[in-house]
Structure formats: C-alpha cells, structure tokens
Design a protein around this nucleic acid. Structure first.
Lengths: 119, 119
DNA sequence: CCACCTTTTTGACATATGTCAAGAGGGATG
DNA sequence: CATCCCTCTTGACATATGTCAAAAAGGTGG
C-alpha cells in the first residue's frame, strides 16, 4: 500500500449512486471501500450480529468481549472502527458503555452494492 | 493478526442466515468477512463497478488497467482476489482475458447483510 | 481521598495487503 | 521458428491491521 493513506470521514451512511449505475470514480469507490473495510473482519461481523440481534440497549463492551472471546482492549478497538464507519453508536451509562448497531448505515451500504440497479 | 490465517474456499456465493437473524458463530462470520474483504478496496470496487456497468462481455485486463490507472500486474492481482471470492469470472479469448462480474455472489452477500431480517 | 470496576489508549509484535518492476507463460501472426 | 502482445507470477517493499499486555482515563461507592 505504498499510496498515501487518505483521511476521509465515513461516519455518515454512504450516499452515492449504486455500483451498477455507472462506473464509479475514485472518490466514490473509496467511500464505499472504507465502509466495507469496517465490516470486513470476522470479529466485527460477529459484533454487528450480536448488536443487531439484541433488542435491548444494554450490551456493554465487556459483554461483547466475553461473547467473542477476545481481550476487552481488542473489542474496544473493533468497536472504534465500527463507530468511525457509522455502523455503531455508543453511549456511556454509568460505569459501562452501551453499544447499538446503526441499521441505517448498513442498509445504505446494501443499496450501493445493488448489482441490478440499472440492468 | 497474530492468529493463524484460516484457509477457506469462498468462491461460491455466501449462503447463511442474515447477520440479524441470530448471533453469528465464528465460522459464519469468517465466511462473510472474507467475501467483504474481497470488496473492501477502492480499486476492486471500481473494477466491479466497471464490470457491472458493462453489458458487453469484452472487458479485458488491459482495458481495466488503463481505466483505473494502475499497473496491469496490480489489476491482475485484484482480479484474482475478486475471482477467488466468486465475484468475477474470467475467460480467455484469444490473446485477451475477458472478465465478468457475478452479480449473484454480490446479491447473496447483500442478503446476508440485511439488518431487518427479523426485526 | 482511596479502592475498585469498566473502558480506552499506547506500545509492541507478527501478519496481511497493495503496489510496482521484472521475469515467465500463453497465443497470435508473420 | 521468431516475434510480439497480453496476462500472470514472483520478489521486494512500505504500509496497514489485529492482537494482547500494560498503563491511563472515566466513574462509582465507601
């Protein structure tokens, strides 16, 4: 990756034409890729799955850590990635931090990946 | 990534319950993550976009290389990744190799990412 | 203030990744 | 066969990534 790393804010749901609408330019492709990258890790997928399937708003970092069997610092790191990509929102409640999946961001990403938009 | 790298064949479209159906186990999460990883690169998203928006079956490696402005060996590498993930099919025709996007694989991935499957 | 719990940050480390140049392979065409 | 094209593979290199332990930061309760 000998290319300068681009600094882009991707905390909002992706909003651009679908991949199949027209050949994407570099900028749009980067926007999509950065969000995909946030999801492209087994641990983070598992975390998203747990958060998406938990209706209660009471999943804290330590719960997640024990659920995926990794160090809390590692899970905190992954949650940070997901947060930066707008996939998760976290709120401190007392001593704990509670996490929620942002289904809107995920849905927006799915829209962009639609392969049949303009067939 | 001090964990042993898992060797998994992901050339077929992903087929598992959506992330929001139930907490995913490690194996399923890995299957999803590996496919996402294949897409989680700006160049590869651009390549997919070009292939998806080209109805004719006549996009060869050198065309793609000049389209994205990278060395042909680099593009060949990316196409290999996409092929391994079942996102692209390539066929040799004479001197050139022609590439096609597999929209089924992309569609299957979108299904798994549905955040509202069981709300 | 002190002891304690949860979370994040930092540092270190091994592994993975994207890129190119150079070489090797596969086919067409003279 | 010789030559030229297109493609893929290999090697090298810089950067990014996932992981943990240790330390720091944020909060609660005595």
């Amino acid at each position: 990756m000998p290319k300068a790393l681009p600094v882009v804010d991707v905390s909002a749901p992706i909003c651009c034409a679908p991949v199949s609408a027209a050949p994407m330019n570099e900028q749009a492709a980067l926007e999509v890729a950065l969000r995909l990258k946030a999801l492209a890790d087994p641990t983070r997928i598992q975390l998203m799955s747990i958060l998406l399937t938990t209706r209660e708003d009471d999943v804290c970092t330590c719960d997640l850590a024990s659920a995926v069997g990794l160090a809390e610092s590692t899970v905190s790191h992954h949650l940070g990635q997901l947060r930066k990509a707008g996939m998760v929102q976290s709120t401190r409640r007392g001593m704990n931090v509670h996490h929620r999946a942002c289904s809107d961001a995920l849905q927006a990403l799915r829209l962009v990946l639609d392969p049949h938009c303009c067939t």
